[in-house]
C-alpha cells in the first residue's frame, strides 16, 4: 500500500538574534526527520517541549516553510506545489489544536467556525452547509442548536469538539491532532479521546497524534515516534514502545510518567539535568549528556535509526 504521507529529511532551522548581530545563532527545531504514515493508521509523535513535534506537524501542514526536505502527500510533492494546488491538498488534511480557547475565533458562532472550511473551498450552497454543520455538531456529540452560540458559551471539552467538527468539515483523509487533550480535565480528556477513536474508525481517518504524554499516545496510536531535540530517537509499534522501550530516552520518559497506581511507586531515579536548548544541541548523540549509558563514542558520533527487534532505535548502545 502506498503511504498517505511521506516525510523525507525534513529540516527546520531558525536564525536567532538580530540580522545584523555577530551573535546570530541557529535554533535547530527539526533536524532531519523521515516518516511515513500509512492510510488508516494513527502515528503518535511524543516528546518533551522543544523536541520539535509541533514544528514537524506545522511543516507537514505547510503552515511553516521547511529549511530542507520533502513532504509527499499521496505521492505528490507538496514543496513544489503552487498555492492553488496547495489549497486542493489542504482540503484533505486538517489540524486540531491544543488550546480550546485560542483555536476558535471568539467573534464567530460555532456554526460559522465549522462552516468556514466549506466556505473557503466553496463546497455546497448555504443551505447545504447549514445542514452539514448540524450533522457535524451531532457527530461530535454536540447539539444542533449549538450552531448559533459563540465559543465563550462552551466549556473546554465542548470547544475541542467544535475544533474537531471544523477539522472534519471537508471530509479530510488526514487529521493532525496537536496535543488535543492536554488542556482538558481528565474526565473530559477521556470523552475526547473516545470521540477521536470513534471518528477514526467510522470515517477511516489517518491520524497524526501529538502529545507529551506517552500513556495517552500509546492508547491512541498504532505506531509511535519518540522525538528528542529535533530528531526521532525511536520509532515502532505502539505496544512495543510502551512495554519494551529500547532507547534510554524512551525508558526515562516512560518511567517519569507518574502512574495512577500507588502500589507501583517506581524507584527509578529520574533523568538528571535539564533539557538542552535546541539552540545549543550537544555533539554526537544529542541525548548523551543525560544518558545513563553514554560512552565516549556517543560524544562524537550521532547514531542513526537502525532496527532493534520490531522498532527502529537511534542508539549506539542497545
Amino acid at each position: 500500500m502506498n503511504p498517505l504521507l511521506e516525510v523525507q529529511g525534513l529540516i527546520k532551522y531558525y536564525p536567532v538574534g538580530s540580522r545584523f548581530s555577530a551573535q546570530r545563532r541557529t535554533l535547530r527545531a527539526v533536524d532531519g526527520i523521515d516518516l511515513t504514515v500509512q492510510p488508516g493508521e494513527t502515528l503518535g509523535l511524543v516528546g518533551e517541549s522543544g523536541c520539535g513535534k509541533s514544528t514537524t506537524v506545522r511543516l507537514i501542514m505547510r503552515l511553516l516553510e521547511p529549511t530542507a526536505g520533502r513532504i509527499l502527500f499521496d505521492g505528490q510533492d507538496m514543496s513544489s506545489m503552487s498555492s492553488a494546488q496547495l489549497k486542493v491538498v489542504r482540503r484533505r488534511m486538517q489540524i486540531v489544536f491544543q488550546d480550546p480557547f485560542a483555536s476558535l475565533n471568539p467573534r464567530k458562532t460555532a456554526g460559522r467556525i465549522i462552516a468556514d472550511p466549506l466556505a473557503i473551498h466553496r463546497i455546497g450552497s448555504a443551505a447545504e452547509r447549514r445542514s452539514r454543520v448540524q450533522d457535524l455538531l451531532e457527530r461530535v456529540g454536540l447539539d444542533r442548536t449549538h450552531a448559533e452560540r459563540y465559543p465563550h458559551e462552551f466549556s473546554g471539552g465542548q470547544r475541542q469538539r467544535i475544533s474537531i467538527a471544523r477539522a472534519l468539515a471537508c471530509s479530510p483523509q488526514l487529521i493532525v491532532a496537536d496535543e488535543p487533550v492536554s488542556a482538558l480535565d481528565v474526565s473530559i480528556q477521556a470523552q475526547v479521546l473516545n470521540l477521536l477513536q470513534e471518528l477514526q474508525r467510522d470515517l477511516a481517518l489517518t491520524m497524526i497524534f501529538i502529545s507529551h504524554d506517552l500513556s495517552v499516545v500509546q492508547y491512541v496510536s498504532d505506531r509511535i515516534a519518540v522525538m528528542y531535540l529535533g530528531k526521532i530517537v525511536e520509532l515502532g509499534p505502539s505496544q512495543a514502545i510502551y512495554y519494551h522501550p529500547q532507547h534510554p530516552y524512551t525508558r526515562s520518559l516512560l518511567s517519569a510518567i507518574p502512574l495512577p497506581d500507588p502500589t507501583r511507586r517506581e524507584a527509578i531515579p529520574p533523568l538528571e539535568s535539564e533539557l538542552p536548548s535546541p539552540m545549543n544541541v550537544p555533539s554526537g548523540c544529542r541525548f548523551h549528556p543525560r544518558c545513563p549509558l553514554a560512552t565516549e563514542r556517543c560524544r562524537h558520533e550521532s547514531p542513526e535509526l537502525r532496527p532493534v527487534g520490531t522498532t527502529l532505535v537511534a542508539c549506539h548502545n542497545v
Binding site: R58, M61, L63, L86, K87, R90, R91, M93, Q94, I95, F97, A102, S103, L104, N105, I113, D116, P117, I120, H121, S163, R166, C170
Partner: peptide
C-alpha cells in the same frame, strides 16, 4: 484559530 484558517486553505 488563525493557523486553523490557514490550514483550511
Amino acid at each position: 484559530y488563525i493557523e486553523a484558517a490557514r490550514a483550511s486553505g
